[in-house]
Design a protein around this nucleic acid. Sequence first.
DNA 1: TTGTACGCGTTATCAG
DNA 2: CTGATAACGCGTACAA
Lengths: 343, 343
Amino acid sequence: MAATLADVAARAGVSSATVSRVLNGNYPVAESTRRRVMAAVADLDYVVNAHARALAAATSDVLGVVVNDISDPFFGVMAGAVQGESALDDLLAVICSTAGSPAEELRYMGLLLRQRVRAIVLTGGHQLDGAHFAELQALVRRAVAADTRVVLCGRPALPDTGAVALEFDDFRGAHALTRYLLSMGHRRIACITGPEGSSTTRARLGGHLAALAEAGVAADESLQVPGGFDRTSGFEGAQVLLDRPEPPTAIVAANDLAALGVLAAARERGVDVPGRLSVTGYDDISFAMDACPALTTVRLPLTEAGRRAGRIAAGREAAAPGSVVSLRPELIVRDSVAAPWIG
Amino acid sequence: MAATLADVAARAGVSSATVSRVLNGNYPVAESTRRRVMAAVADLDYVVNAHARALAAATSDVLGVVVNDISDPFFGVMAGAVQGESALDDLLAVICSTAGSPAEELRYMGLLLRQRVRAIVLTGGHQLDGAHFAELQALVRRAVAADTRVVLCGRPALPDTGAVALEFDDFRGAHALTRYLLSMGHRRIACITGPEGSSTTRARLGGHLAALAEAGVAADESLQVPGGFDRTSGFEGAQVLLDRPEPPTAIVAANDLAALGVLAAARERGVDVPGRLSVTGYDDISFAMDACPALTTVRLPLTEAGRRAGRIAAGREAAAPGSVVSLRPELIVRDSVAAPWIG
DNA sequence: TTGTACGCGTTATCAG
DNA sequence: CTGATAACGCGTACAA
């Protein structure tokens, strides 16, 4: 159906090698034949076959980006940055949404590997769970061995795999956030954590608890409710917490989405934020500032990380295999935190 | 570097044809040899080469999704639905962000075509501009001729191209929205439109003006300010409108993002919404309900459209080439609209 | 500057 | 049930 190099060659009265040369522009070709070839290309609506090219040249024009959920702006922003940056080199980005499932992540890695993608950008936290983790590590190692660059974008390094890591320092971010709450006078600080077993959850919770400990505030287990990185978790977690005989004066949500849920729950119960309850988010997605009240949160350099990951993936920015850089989060103070209410 | 079919065949002591057969499972193969082959595959860490397969079998496992901006939830939700649905068939989705540029859209179409993708899902509105439009139409026609399914997702049909269209009836949605405002008593209704030349802008503005006309309300040109589908457009448009000697009692924003900007501008000036000013959005992205006040808007079946587009793209749902279905928007009444303020 | 010929890794057809 | 072998469409030494 579709025209091939040979078809074009025939029509232009040259060999297919010549057509290939004018198309790739790597070899000198007489201007006159060049023109004839281009004319034939236009006449036949010729379109290169990327598969044949990839097979012959052993290079691919696509890269993979794996995210938890592309409809979540946290991932959307990073994926967009990766895509935008790699598009500068005419690369295509395939996006894989795992819904946080490590099994899906593995599956997608496999699909990407068989596509012989140029690079794979992994976002989100990873599951600490042993089996999956080991498998992932093995897959990454294989990918790197097969010359597929692997970039960990906003995600902890994978030691001894050769993957380049652009880490978010969540421990530090969460630490700063809780310290801020403490400085405002809060002592009964609850938190709604992310999904269990996630490296992100562990880092954020770790920073939170460390700050508490440093301030000499005993961590009350009953103020730690498990949740996830979504609005519903925040909403439900807040219900539970506000039902406690001694409700917290502040709630640290797993991320901005969860914080939005907390705000909604507070609104529904007529609990004034920040008058009666302080709330914090994490990530600083663009909607954080439009929340009601505007969310005090921690800004992650999502775009910067994505861009950089894209450049490294495209090979435009050098990065030693196995190198790891830590990206600094920034405390963003807005209106959802105030001094605790004195009853 | 990477193992090939031949390598596996050698190791298993069979021909490469046999290996191919056990891998694809289409042909009967003796259980004993099957096992030996699988063992060899495992030993060698063999991974199929999708390019070679695509070349030989003339089929591809990837589909393209073109969006304006993947970090915008409007597109993120649709793209996610498409991806999720097509993933059920082990298809990979390459996502292309055009930033609304028709030239980029054309460029991506070309890149996707050379990848011989199975299908292309086009989202967003199209530019009414003649030249680009004609080129797009030609490209789509070529794609369809080359057996690449083209699905227009939440986007107007492309007549005589063979593309399947899942349209959003924006005229109807905007019409309902303005009629609602009218029913609440508003007469000085301003609007901040989307980008000029976009089919979406035209449809939404059309519905708005039609509702006005039906109610016998003269459309005041000075209450129509051009903008875009982003927060900044709403913010700046609102500034302009609120500076008018006779400010509007209601502002219809191009979409939810723009409405968020309008709300921010109102907040900054101390204009109470909905007390002094009513505001409406469009799309009903998930953040609309967390806006302050919660946005009255029009819900578009983003997920449904995306899912369906994904199924059609994957070939799991039948759809006659050139068929067009219209998806009904739904008015969502929340808290950002009230009766106009009587001074 | 241009053409020839082979290889890239699979699938598929045809014998056996 | 299994093995040769010919495509698939393109890049690229090697020759001319």
